[in-house]
Design a protein around this nucleic acid. Structure first.
Length: 474
RNA sequence: GGCCCCAUCGUCUAAUGGUUAGGACAUCACUCUUUCAAGGUGAAGAUACGGGUUCGACUCCCGUUGGGGCUACCA
């Protein structure tokens, strides 16, 4: 059985790249009927935070990502790593290094100034047992470095094919820090091996690490898993997407009123496509079709416009109940006051309002702002709408009288009545239509007028017309 | 600098070595229409460059250029 994992480090909110990697791992495991696990890589004590951990878990849940095992925490597994590190030292596959960070930094700086490459010079490899013993006794701080043997490594990347690298290009990297915590490359190998991960799917920035890790797998006596390296998601400037680019965490999109299904759908298509021209796909479709073999090699620029378009498609085409649920949970998540009780009072009316306004909304924020107008009677009247009202005040009075007397309240009767009135007066229907929309919604533009009036119902309509007319009586 | 990865419209992408190089977003035009959208129709828009291999190359090989990533006691 295959097993994949997502292994975030809790040093910030879920950014777009992490979300997509998680999604691909999740899809792949589901497609292959395997398992998917969550592991928190909190070996960096300095940067890991509880807040970040919570927002990652909450974010994955929002995206609909479900893990079968975990979360596991690397910070709780140092004992395990220690055993394997000790074993490597015993077998002379790793060694203690007492070099000061100052010396290392100076060497590196000097080398880069002279335009030459530098890797650790193995000074401490030549230490005699006596010297090591003495330093240990003196309590000198040390790190453990992994000894890179001579040779070359090759592996077959599921996306990129065969990639090779000479060991002479890899340095004896640190696996245990001087504070006895373990570095990423080491803990990730021990964990992936022990947890039975069969497929490691992650960003291309890890290709170089892959060779270090494969060497570690072998030194430790484990079989390496299969690797698939995903293309990067870039900002508009074609640099790796980051905080610099504005909204780079999924939380920001959530707050902007993006529906998680739309975000998932969009992210899925950044680097992968099913091969036919399908774009709008639900989770079941994606899982059924997903395969890492179809993942692109080249990086992709994140296009917010297309995300917004996709979000608007979801808003337009979702079941009305599902859309309502999205709106409700958004309101709760954002802590918007006063709306929930009004919606609950008349759920059917809310559905009709959503149906009326959904076509014109791009985000949940738009949707809620517009819904407000229909839900509350104290809606504001925009300047542009006010102009229509001013010039059309007499028409408003006339149509109000007619509508008060109207018995069948549906859009065809409403339209008939208004058109009859305008014809009687030899005027264009627009002279009525525009002021009425302006009066009823406070907006110059919006849905077709008779749809608005039908949804509003007779009571609200008359009340709203009165309110506006009265503004001019005083 | 060294190592590694990548290269189709502005962007996301499709194309067993044989297609008028397809679709989507964005843009523009037309259409529908009481407004604004949506929808419909259409336009414009790409194989980075140079060499090979081949009857035939977006596709395979080499080089150039360009872009990106990594180069820590971060992950």
């Amino acid at each position: 059985m295959i097993k994949t994992r997502i292994a975030p480090s809790p040093t910030g909110a879920i950014h777009i790249g992490l979300a997509r990697t998680a999604l691909y791992n999740f899809f792949y495991s589901r497609n292959k009927k395997g398992k998917f696990l969550l592991r928190i890589e909190d070996t960096d004590r300095e940067r890991s935070t509880e807040a970040s951990l919570n927002s990652i878990i909450e974010g994955f849940k929002w995206l609909g990502i479900e893990w079968d095992e975990g979360p596991f925490f690397q910070s709780q597994r140092f004992g395990i790593y220690k055993r394997f590190a000790d074993k490597l030292i015993e077998e002379n596959k790793a060694y203690r290094c007492f070099c000061s960070t100052d010396r290392l930094r100076n060497e590196r700086e000097q080398a880069s100034k002279e335009g030459r490459a530098w890797k650790y010079d193995r000074l401490c490899l030549n230490l005699t047992d006596d010297e090591i013993e003495r330093k240990l006794k003196a309590g000198d701080p040390y790190v453990i470095r992994f000894f890179i043997p001579n040779g070359e490594s090759v592996y077959n990347d599921l996306i990129h094919g065969e990639i090779r690298k000479k060991h002479s290009d890899i340095e004896d990297f640190v696996i245990m820090r001087s504070d006895e915590s373990f570095t990423y490359n080491f803990s990730v190998v021990v964990d992936d091996a022990l947890m039975g991960i069969t497929h490691v799917i992650r960003g291309v920035e890890h290709i170089n690490n892959t060779f270090k890790q494969i060497l570690l797998y072998k030194a430790l006596g484990f079989n390496p898993p299969l690797f698939a390296h995903l293309p990067l998601i870039l900002g508009p400037d074609k640099k790796k997407l980051s905080k610099r680019h504005g909204a780079s965490s999924i939380d920001e999109y959530r707050q902007d009123g993006i529906i998680s299904k739309a975000l998932v759908n969009y992210l899925t298509l950044l680097g992968w496509s099913p091969g036919d021209n399908r774009e709008i796909m639900d989770l079941a479709d994606i899982i059924a079709l997903f395969d890492v073999k179809r993942v692109k090699k080249s990086n992709a620029v994140f296009d917010k416009d297309k995300l917004l378009w996709m979000n608007s498609m979801y808003i337009k085409e979702m079941d009305i109940e599902a859309l309502s649920d999205e709106v409700l949970s958004f309101i709760k998540h954002q802590g918007i006051n006063g709306m929930l009780s009004v919606i609950d009072k008349d759920r059917d009316y809310f559905y009709r309002v959503l149906e009326l306004i959904r076509d014109r909304a791009t985000t949940l924020v738009d949707l809620i702002e517009t819904a407000r107008i229909y839900l509350f009677e104290d809606y504001d009247i925009e300047k542009k709408a006010m102009k229509y009202i001013k010039t059309g005040i007499e028409h408003l009075k006339l149509i109000k009288q007619r509508y008060e007397a109207l018995e069948v309240w549906d859009k065809s009767h409403l339209e008939e009545e208004l058109r009859a009135l305008s014809e009687e007066r030899g005027e264009k229907a627009g002279l009525f239509i525009h002021p009425v929309r302006a009066a009823l919604t406070g907006r110059k533009v919006g849905p077709p007028l008779f749809d608005i009036i039908e949804v509003l119902g007779k009571i609200r309509t008359i009340k709203r017309l009165d309110r506006v007319i009265n503004m001019y009586i005083i």
